[in-house]
């Protein structure tokens, strides 16, 4: 049982670390500000989520896990707010996104 949780937490922490590194690489590789926002949202969701899951598996059902999950939830709620504030400020700061505007929006909602 101990071995099983150890293996599971190894897998989740390694996968989470992979997504964190991917976020860093994307932050460097992607060509402009608005595309870099996407790279940052990767470690903010799955990267943190998987690492926290691995740590929770290591800690077991204790107060430590509660705190970890609280940190995760807090970041899950504040991350989009910060990203949205950044994007909106950049848009108001006359930063042109490197993108093709899509005009033909077929309304799919009733």
């Amino acid at each position: 049982m101990q071995l099983l949780t150890d293996i599971l937490s190894w897998i989740t922490i390694l996968t989470g670390s992979f997504f964190v590194v991917t976020g860093g690489v994307g932050l460097l590789r992607l060509p402009d500000f608005f595309t870099r926002l996407h790279a940052v949202s990767m470690p903010d969701t799955l990267g943190i989520g998987l690492i926290v899951l691995g740590l929770v598996l290591q800690a077991g059902f204790t107060q430590t896990s509660t705190k970890l999950i609280m940190i995760f939830l807090f970041m899950l709620f504040t991350g989009p707010a910060a990203t949205h504030a950044l994007a909106k400020a950049a848009l108001h700061g006359k930063l042109k996104p490197l993108a093709s505007e899509k005009k033909d929006q077929e309304e799919s909602s009733p």
């Binding site: 964190v20 500000f33 903010d44 690492i51 740590l55 950044l86 930063l95």
Partner: peptide, 23 residues
């Protein structure tokens, strides 16, 4: 190149700091 890139980097850096403190 822009200020917003830097703020984004600082924000992302802070997230990683939280992670590394926990780990």
């Amino acid at each position: 190149p822009t200020t917003y890139d830097r703020i984004l980097a600082v924000n992302s850096f802070g997230t990683k700091t939280v992670l590394i403190i926990a780990v």
